[in-house]
């Protein structure tokens, strides 16, 4: 387990006491990543410890979530072949194919 970067709090430690949710799996650049039903794609990625996924056009710099509310477009991914989907806004569906290169 990594000790830096984003993480989803485990249910046993969570003061909010979330109910059980179905596990889902999305394929991120062909690698399976586990998440929970109801999470956004950004939530799944960050819950799995990922901080960035996109590369900028001009300077080739890494980007991930910045605003978290659909305003900045930093978090764009391709979902099931459809480009330019905001990962922080799109709910993940089991089996979604997410590509970080467009």
């Amino acid at each position: 387990m990594t000790t830096t970067g984003p993480a989803r709090i485990g249910p046993a430690d969570d003061p909010v006491q979330p109910g059980d949710a179905a596990e889902i799996v999305v394929l991120v650049d062909d690698v399976p990543v586990a998440g929970l039903a109801g999470q956004t794609i950004a939530g799944v990625l960050m819950g799995a410890g990922r901080q960035s996924w996109r590369t900028t056009a001009r300077q080739g710099r890494p980007r991930g979530v910045f605003c978290g509310i659909g305003v900045c477009f930093d978090c764009l991914v391709t979902v099931n072949g459809l480009r330019d989907v905001r990962a922080c806004q799109r709910r993940a569906a089991d089996g979604d194919e997410v590509s970080t290169h467009d």
């Binding site: 939530g43 960050m46 980007r63 979530v65």
Partner: peptide, 26 residues
């Protein structure tokens, strides 16, 4: 401010509330 790991405060709030994801450890 364009480095991954820099967030708006609202992003941290949204991820905490709706995902139970902390944007970092420190």
């Amino acid at each position: 401010w364009d480095l991954p790991g820099v967030f708006t405060a609202g992003a941290a709030q949204a991820l905490a509330k709706a995902e139970r994801v902390a944007v970092g450890r420190r």
